[in-house]
Design a protein around this nucleic acid. Structure first.
Lengths: 241, 241
DNA sequence: TAAACAATGTGTATTTAGTACATATTCATT
DNA sequence: AATGAATATGTACTAAATACACATTGTTTA
């Protein structure tokens, strides 16, 4: 709203619609919380508690509070439901289909977040909150499958040019792990030598001069994301608008 | 909002906040309407009618109606204020700063649209609606400068991989015009031969076997965007979510 | 009407990035 | 000590990006 003031609506057409009608739209955030484990990209879903969606899963979301920034709301949802802090969050798209919520008009703003499942053990105890393999998710409550797909598309577009997916890996990782992660996000197989050349060219990684351990085969070298990228692409700061 | 129902809010913390508080947030769309004329990228602005922003310009926007899709709302704003139809519209980002609107909490969803100024002569008569050179816009009402910048950044990112900016040109254009448009959006100078090679590679253009007319120098060949791209990237369909 | 002007149209050499592909090495296991 | 299984690495080829200069065409004007 730029020139029209919520209180003094002007045109004849608009005057027919009461103040209350205008403010009978709720706003929420929905979080596509992505993790990576066992060579699979996963998304955190909860059983829907709406009878209209019985048996279906949905994303984590909540209404935005009256004095809450959008980014703060999505961060709060993440914290309240998972106990996680310091996560990478990014706004993706607003979804406003009139019939998207059975209880009334709810416009939602979708975020995705990337977390390292192994490192941030979350308190999944209290409710039916579980990691689901993204590739096996076919139907979700509301328009959440749309939202998930939009997030995944955006992530794919971003992943080769911006060092974001390190948020899905532990601090130290091997090039094999990194390659497998790229493969599962992009949905393609990559040639190992070419992949390494491409990554080397980006100059994102720091060679830690350490090796993998506890493997039943030759261990690879360990790397981490260079510090200068962590400021921009790791944790909360990613979501600042 | 995914699992929580607007009517039956559950947790203790949430119960403190009344239904009315939750629904006292308004939602708007704001349109960054971009045009191109005299080798300059321009944005359509209106004088703000809020005393808090006296003398400042703002984007075109309006509240979303109770039964209106987001894309439809931005399209309506565009039509009502400019008379334009069949424009390219794309959602960019939601802005929800608590203090962004002096009259209360208004979350806005920003769109940009691209139109051919010369072709769509708009009825600028009725109010203080004018084209402003994007490069000279320094301060706007609300957070509209932020919104403008976000749109421009997103446009820059998109422009080399997707045939969107043809919406800013007339149906028939020369390669020089196209290059100048790219230069003004990207803010760089491009080598003519390399530019032509790059565009040829994309295979976006149809050679019309016509020449420019009414020039005081050698005319160039005229091209148009191939039809197969018009479906996806020209006019309304661009905004479908 | 010829010369000057101002823009169009085009090609080649160089560098850089992307792709396809095979062998030697290292550690763990047997 | 031999085997297995993964790591590590290099080269030839193709495609794209960049740097760069000259002939051509239509208009203007002297």
């Amino acid at each position: 709203m730029s020139n029209t003031n919520a209180v003094k609506l002007k045109t004849a057409e608009i005057e027919k619609i009461s103040h209350l009608d205008y403010f009978n739209i709720a706003i929420s955030v929905d979080c596509v919380i992505l993790g990576y484990e066992d060579k699979e990209l996963k998304v955190l879903l909860i059983k829907s508690d709406l009878k209209e969606f019985e048996g279906l899963y949905s994303l984590l979301g909540d209404l935005i509070r009256p004095n809450e920034e959008l980014d703060a709301a999505s961060y709060r949802v993440l914290q309240e439901r998972t106990g996680l802090e310091d996560v990478y969050l990014e706004q993706v798209h607003a979804f406003g289909g009139i019939e998207r919520h059975p209880s009334g008009r709810v416009i939602t703003i979708a975020y995705y977040s990337l977390i390292d499942i192994k490192n941030h053990k979350l308190k999944l105890s209290h409710n039916e909150l579980h990691w689901h393999e993204v590739s096996k998710v076919t139907k979700l409550a509301f328009d959440h499958k749309d939202i998930l797909d939009t997030c995944l598309t955006q992530l794919k577009d971003k992943v080769m040019d911006h060092p974001v997916i390190f948020n899905l890996l532990p601090e130290k990782f091997s090039l094999r792990e990194l390659q497998e992660l790229y493969e599962s996000i992009l949905g393609v197989e990559l040639d190992r030598r070419n992949f390494r050349k491409k990554i080397a060219l980006k100059d994102w990684l720091e060679d830690l001069n350490e090796m993998e351990t506890n493997l039943s085969h030759r261990p690879g070298k360990l790397y981490s994301l260079k510090n200068k990228f962590k400021e921009e692409y790791v944790g909360l700061s990613g979501s600042t608008q």
